[in-house]
């Protein structure tokens, strides 16, 4: 199995044409684990780490475009991302461990499409759009349409994620990403919740965006709960009253990390903890 390192996108399409069964990777933190387990053994690997065009972050009017090959550490440290998307920074800070965050990339976390992927709930609440590119051109899909199931995406043959588009004008005043795992670092989420709220000065919820991780085959969102919260004061009573809805919306599974029953409980408890979000959460 040979490993190829194209330095520009045009070279990528060329080497992919010559090596049709090749798999692509950037950080390698998922694919190389699968190779070791023998889950996949392609005839060639194409590493995207040398393509500088995939590591840029820029603004287009009201949108920030993040190159898909940007490592998590670079995003956590980027002033624009810190200011505009604190919920994403909070999520990336608890993804894997420092060396994993130095290697792994945002595009890779999306392409892996694990229901436990830490960037995903944050990207769902931010209504991220995924830019997909092949030799012929680019198309854009909302993240919830791109991810179709556990490990399943809408990536076409010989197509890669090149960018993530996030609108800057998200009118939220507080946000939070909270994850429950077996330990703090190096733990895959048992359940997680990303939240963005716009609160009025008197503590009323003007709008809400919520996304649970590890709580179903894909990230779980709920227009029903978001609508029920809007216009209401953010109180423990409001949240308690919506617990049956949370328990209905999530559809977790039993696996080595936790049971479905426990996950459902944690998903609900993460929601209850939002009552303290104005004090504890990062401000948006």
């Amino acid at each position: 199995m040979k490993v190829l390192l194209p330095e520009i996108l045009e070279m990528l399409w060329e080497v992919w044409e010559q090596n049709p069964g090749a798999e692509v990777y950037t950080g390698g933190t998922d694919l190389l684990v699968k190779l070791r387990e023998g889950v996949t053994w392609p005839p060639a690997l194409i590493c995207l780490e040398r393509i500088n065009a995939l590591r840029q972050i820029w603004e287009e009017e009201d949108t920030v475009v993040i190159g898909a090959g940007t490592p998590h550490t670079a995003l956590i440290r980027h002033p624009l991302i810190q200011v505009e998307f604190p919920v994403l920074v909070e999520a990336l800070k608890v993804l894997g461990s420092p060396p994993i965050r130095n290697m792994g990339t945002l595009g890779g976390n999306i392409a892996t499409a694990s229901p436990a992927g830490d960037s995903l709930p944050a990207l769902y609440v931010l209504n991220a759009e995924i830019v997909l590119t092949d030799a012929k051109g680019s198309r854009t899909l909302p993240i919830h349409e791109f991810i179709t199931g556990p490990g399943q995406t809408g990536l076409g043959p010989r197509e890669i994620i090149t960018g993530i588009r996030l609108k800057k004008t998200a009118p939220y005043t507080v946000s939070r990403y909270e994850k429950v795992g077996k330990r703090k670092a190096m733990a895959i989420a048992v359940a997680s919740l990303a939240t963005c709220l716009r609160l009025s000065p008197d503590g009323r919820i003007e709008s809400a965006r919520l996304a649970w991780g590890s709580a179903g085959p894909a990230i779980v969102t709920s227009p029903e709960i978001e609508t029920a919260m809007s216009g209401q004061p953010l109180t423990p009573e409001l949240l308690r009253g919506l617990i049956p809805a949370v328990e209905r919306e999530v559809s977790p599974i039993d696996d080595i990390r936790a049971t479905a029953v426990y996950r459902r409980k944690v998903a609900a408890n993460l929601f209850l903890r939002l009552s303290g979000i104005s004090e504890g959460g990062a401000s948006a």
């Binding site: 040979k2 490993v3 190829l4 390192l5 950080g27 390698g28 933190t29 190389l32 684990v33 070791r36 690997l45 590493c47 780490e49 894997g96 461990s97 420092p98 060396p99 994993i100 130095n102 290697m103 190096m186």
Partner: peptide
Amino acid sequence: TGECGACTILVDGIPRLSCLMLAAQ
């Protein structure tokens, strides 16, 4: 598999896991 850090090396000064990097890199 990238979970323990025992194989940490510095690549251009940055900690990376040598079990999850291939020679070409």
